[in-house]
């Protein structure tokens, strides 16, 4: 029966425009970095590109694989975290926005199966997105013929991107919970943005490793000094956030009045 529930969730995801928009959104990231690399390799071209060129030069960028891949990690880490929040907000929030949540709750299907299948669908789509974008980044990097490539560098970049993506997913159930409580898309998106902002503030106070939404930015070096290895406490904090998010979402779907 769970397989049937899962199949319905995949059908909904596959037929949604939002799904393909998220792929488009994330795939623009490597293209953007590649454009900057292309510009900084020739200052003459930079001038013709106006502000973008000036900004790229001012940032002190150098067009090498290490720089290119560190920027990719930033995109998958921060941009991906927001995009994943958007996916989860959509997968859960659409049932309320479309008024279909009530059709799912008086069925011969346990309500927690529906929560679980939605999280699995979001996870699968998230993995597809990250893998597709990392692969795209390597293809574009190769086409640009950037200097400084090594296998160890590539493995390190893939590891970092996947770890950042994995940590981001552990925070997703909390976003799902806010979508269920807020009955729509906007509250979970607001929540995700708010948490990132709080994470940014906390990163300057030394509390980053303790706050779930600071862990990815800390790991990829988006705030403060990049850490080479995350402390165990950070893993524990995000794991607990994951479990609490799942429990809260399941409890809300089960016990909250569905009066909408």
């Amino acid at each position: 029966m769970f397989a049937q529930v899962l199949a319905t969730e995949f059908l909904k995801l596959r037929r949604s425009k939002v799904t393909w928009l998220t792929l488009l959104g994330l795939s623009l990231g490597p293209l953007g970095i590649a454009l900057m690399m292309w510009i900084v390799r020739a200052p003459g071209r930079a001038a013709r590109f106006g502000l973008l060129g000036t900004k790229a030069n001012l940032a002190g960028l150098v067009a090498t694989w290490p720089v290119y891949l560190s920027m990719l990690t930033l995109i998958v880490g921060i941009g991906g975290m927001l995009l994943l929040s958007f996916i989860v907000a959509y997968v859960f929030g659409r049932e309320y926005a479309d008024g279909t949540a009530k059709n799912l709750l008086a069925l011969p299907v346990a309500r927690h199966w529906i929560v679980l299948s939605k999280l699995i669908v979001a996870a699968v789509w998230w993995i597809v997105l990250v893998v597709a974008v990392v692969a795209e980044a390597f293809v574009i990097g190769a086409l640009l013929a950037l200097p400084g490539f090594s296998t160890a560098l590539a493995i390190g970049a893939v590891h970092d991107a996947l770890l950042a993506a994995g940590i981001s997913f552990l925070l997703a159930p909390m976003v799902a919970w806010v979508a269920v409580l807020g009955r729509g898309y906007m509250p979970p998106l607001g929540f995700a943005l708010g948490m990132l902002a709080v994470g940014d503030v906390l990163s300057h106070t030394g509390w980053a490793r303790w706050f779930p939404w600071s862990v990815v930015p800390l790991f990829i070096g988006a705030v403060g000094q990049r850490v080479t290895a995350l402390p165990a406490t950070s893993y524990i904090v995000v794991a607990l956030t994951f479990l609490a998010g799942i429990a809260a979402t399941m409890a809300s779907v089960r016990w909250t009045d569905n009066a909408q």
Binding site: K12, S16, D98, T100, K102
Partner: peptide
């Protein structure tokens, strides 16, 4: 709920799915 069919308040369906797909979702879930 294997034995109960219902319609509460407004008629709702997944807008991106066809009529047949919407019903197929119900078929699988019941």
């Amino acid at each position: 709920f294997s034995h109960v069919g219902y319609l509460v308040e407004s008629a709702t369906a997944y807008p991106n799915l066809t009529v047949r797909e919407n019903l197929d979702i119900q078929r699988r879930l019941t």
